[in-house]
Amino acid sequence: MALKTPASRQTASTETRIIRFSTAERTVHWAVALAFLYATLTGLALWSPRLFWLSAIFGGGTTVRAWHPWGGVLFALFFAVMFRRWNRQMRLDGDDRRWLRLAHRYAVHDESGLPEAGRFNAGQKALFWMQASSGSLLLLTGLVLWWPEIMPRLLREISVLIHPIAAVVSIGGLIIHVYMGTAAVPGAFRGMTQGWVTSEWAASHHSKWYREIRRR
């Protein structure tokens, strides 16, 4: 193990690099991520008094109140671009549904009987739809909370409950997403930063996609 060489140097000589995400895809992904991060951290400052200190990092409570909604609007806009690009690829097929039923096996690295994954595996697809739904709820309820002085009471009473619930769902999804994309699946992060993966990584994690690419 001590002789481990950095994957990037080693693969450059012995392995084929496969483009995983185009520059456009990576740009929009990170635009979504930054807007999400800003909205999350400023939102957490208002979620709990124990996290209000976060507002100090972002310019104080009043600034956070004024800009958090704009962070949300940016997130929604960027997500809409990402949605247009990916929503067809994110549709769940029969294999995906079987995959989701066996997701517990995937979690413990027992891939026996697990259907092969395409460009996105069923977990990634599920995350996409989850974030799209909770993001829509956050946007709608956020618009209500933005202008309390003109919004009807009933909408405000519903929104103060739905907005944080959707936020907890989104942030929960993010925690899993970040863990999977960094520590849990080595090589995945480079796919979203530098844009490429090794052929072995592709063959192992997204075999259906890998075969498609080979055929082309």
Partner: peptide
């Protein structure tokens, strides 16, 4: 971590 299943990876 979930490795690529092949010893050559990394």
């Amino acid at each position: 971590p979930k490795d690529s299943g092949k010893p050559a990876d990394g």
